[in-house]
Amino acid sequence: MNWIYRGRCWKFGDNLGIDGDIMPLRFALEREMNAEVLAPFLMDGIEPGFAAKVKPGDIIVGGKRFGQGNPHIQGFLGIQGNGLGLVAVSIPRGSLRNAVNAGLPFLVGCEGVGDLCETGDELDVNFETGLFRNITRGTEHQYDPIAPELRAIVALGGWKESFHKRLAETAS
């Protein structure tokens, strides 16, 4: 898996809601799990047309409590479905599990990341090492990557793939 994303920065504030802000609630209620179906609706609640502007490799920079609310996975599937990476100051408990479950490359615990970039900057983020580089500004910052056990799940594609792999290993 490619852990290095190079693309434009899309910066958001604190407390983005998983339902409504990041993804319309109806997809959670319908238990829609297809990332391709969800991708066009990413950030529909706060920035309609967002998905049409982004390109694979772009990076969402979130603030505190990114994905707060009832832990539904659909918003993270939508980010992954657009080929985006995520760097956030914090992600609440249930949503953090869902970011892993969705197979999304992300960094979390990135204190002050909002001061290191603006929307439109060119970023280069290594999700395996935690190195965050702002090409436009010529600056870089080292964050902690997520734990290797969780990176392994992301690398496989997310929860279902990881579960099926464990099953196969248990059976053999």
Binding site: P71, I73, G94, R97, N98, E149, F163, R166
Partner: peptide, 18 residues
């Protein structure tokens, strides 16, 4: 509490936990 991963626990007896 877990969400979707409860199925993994039911099958394999565990799932990751920090």
């Amino acid at each position: 509490p877990l969400v979707v991963e409860i199925s993994e626990v039911l099958a394999l007896g565990s799932v990751w936990l920090k």
